[in-house]
Nucleic acid binder design. Sequence first.
RNA 1: GGCGGCAUAGCCAAGUGGUUAAGGCAGCGGUCUGCAAAACCGUUAUUCAUCGGUUCGAAUCCGAUUGCCGCCUCCA
Length: 493
Amino acid sequence: MSIKIYNTLSKKKETFEPLVEGQVGMYACGITAYDVCHVGHARSAVVFDVITRYLRYRGYHVTYVKNFTDVDDKIITKANAEGKAISEISERYIREHDEDMDALGVARPTWAPRATEHIAGMIKLINILLANGLAYEADGDIYYAVEKFKGYGKLSGRNLEEMVAGARVDVNEKKRYPLDFALWKASKEGEPWWESPWGKGRPGWHIECSIMSQNFLGDTFDIHGGGEDLIFPHHENEIAQSEGATGKQLARFWVHNGFVKVSSEKMSKSLGNFFTIKDILKNYHPEVVRLFMLQSHYKGPVDFSSESLAEARMGMERFYATLKAVKGALAACGDFPVVTMERLSGKDKDIFEKIASLPDRFKEAMDDDFNTPRAIGYVFDTVRLINGYMSEEKFSVSAEACLILDKAGRVIAEVGGVLGLFLDDPDDYFMQDRDREAGKRGLDVHEIDRLIEERRAARLAKDWKRADEIRNVLAEKKIILKDTPAGTSWRIE
RNA sequence: GGCGGCAUAGCCAAGUGGUUAAGGCAGCGGUCUGCAAAACCGUUAUUCAUCGGUUCGAAUCCGAUUGCCGCCUCCA
């Protein structure tokens, strides 16, 4: 079995073979640290987090690099407006970014370099491009001469004439050709600067990724990723810079994630239709947000709304309800002798084997361009299987059941570890969910508990009328009661 | 204006040439329950935007049409 990945460069799904056997170098473009992250940033982070985890699960040693852009017009503008140093602004938002990603369960990259740590490397790279005749100086600015790089447009599927004909390119007297882009800009008053052979200046946006990827991963590496809005011009320009300097292919696979949309429109700062990660995590469990994203393929768009999040929450509830039941049954397993699967027969054997097959089916789905929706579908299948097994009339906790349910818990944890799902304790999950939902709707937990206690007394006296009244009162507040032999529990719809 | 993507049930969403079109949410019928909830069983697309074409065979390939979206300016 081999992994297939859709490559933006070839526009085809290709079999993934790393450059060095058993090792993967991956670079994903991170954020510009000038504001808090929104759900769109979260999606990209979750996508590449899952890709990293899956490659590691499949036995690869992955070096994952995700950069921070900490020098840029927007950061400078903000710093000047607040009268602060740019590093103060960028460090603040890098810290916030890290908090958000940690909260979402996104593993930290192997390396998270900042652009400003690599200025010397950028200058070196620009010098090579100048020497290669691919760049030119104009009044302390350095521009990349796009026409000189054959292959410009190969990633985004464009050609120069068409783009120029399409107008909408900015007028800049210093550029020899409209699509040339800045590698280095002479610093103006009030802007940060670094010494360079061309005077005091600061780097252009694209150059940082070329040097940082090379520094950590070498001239050629396996996977380069980012949001699909980076395909042009950012990634196209990265290719021009890196390949123009080294003469070698930059990245072998280009992977781009689709957008988060709001009412069919791209979520973005400029449209103002964004939700910050912090706001969303106040209202939803992080795994609900991940499930919402991973139930769509990473390449396609995903429409963000309170309805779609609520739907994901219901799905998550299904998983955790099963996990809770499994945990409950397993708690009694200490009393039984340990049996091995050879002891199983008939239906027990059949169900054990079906449950045990989850990781293989999971791999089958994930090997096919990280098809998380299909993979999650298989987990749902397994959940139904487990629930069916436990709801059989003759079901009781037995040595055989313990073996089967233990396996069930393990396979779900195994695939959950890759998806970053099902990792919470089920009781904690429901407790958190209840508190979160109660808070969201302004419900008083103590009052609810009081009513439930009153209902318990009524039920004990077989006063069904009063018991149902209380049920109805709570139902109006979307509170669903569940009576079990152990007592009554509740959840919010 | 140039380039590109998408269109599958009430909603979300897999499937991209060949057995009964995954899965989730919602709905309906049943089992269970004092009544419920959860869970389970059954059920909900003879059909994949529309119209043509290729093929023994297409949701899947090709063309046209319609609609939605994205990139071309910072963007995950």
